[in-house]
Amino acid sequence: MISEPFAVGDSLLHRTDPAVKIISAMALALSIATSSSFQVAGAGLLVAACCCYAAELPLGPLARRLATVNIFILLLWITLPLTGGGGHMVRLGSLELSGKGIALAGLISLKANAVYLLLTALLSTSTIAAIGHGLERLHLPNKLTILLLTTYRYLGRIELEYKRLRRSATLRCFHGSTNLHTYRTYGYLIGMTLIRSYERSRRIHQAMIMRGFTGTFPVLIQQRTGTMDLLFLALCVCISLLFSFLTIR
């Protein structure tokens, strides 16, 4: 359930410094997401597609992720054309659709997909651990990076813990449906998962204290920001400034 299919690889984007990628992704995403122009949204999608190509992302997992992103967008396509209002109406059989609503839904679809592809190409090409250390180098509070790295580290463990509880419930003929018994069982399963994680966290904390934990994680691989990284950063910032300029104009 929890995996990082895009983090393995040796493309240009995989080798770029995570800290640089975080800033670039933030700048580009903000400039595209806040734009109200179709040109910028389209150009953003193009830039995002180029990044995905450069990152040599596997197409299967990427398509599946895009499908989840577009579920909420689908809701907008259902409601906005019917309720968007505005003067210009489009006739479709007996339905009167709002031109403004259709335009808004179209713009949002372009922007959402562009930003999502961009984030995948830039951020998912690093492991979460690398992103965490990148954030630390960008001077995020130390506690926040510890929270991020530890939460991520134990996701898989706790998922296994939950699955084991769920399996033992199945072995005892538990079958979920819409009734109070099902909800009580799920409530207890979740409660037990919380207790197990709490117990585990105390053991981990003791083990960490014993090994001299003082509130920081030492970093084994020191990432350096090279000339290529800075060039990449400059390029991304220029593109996002251009997008912002085009939006304001």
Binding site: L144, I146, S197, Y198, M208, T214
Partner: peptide, 29 residues
Amino acid sequence: LKHIDTDHIIETSLLSSAFFVASLVHIPL
């Protein structure tokens, strides 16, 4: 973050991963 001290950060992190896992559980309705 001010409310979490270093002694409780690991406990908070693991509870947070437990909630992450619990939020992925599908409940029949």
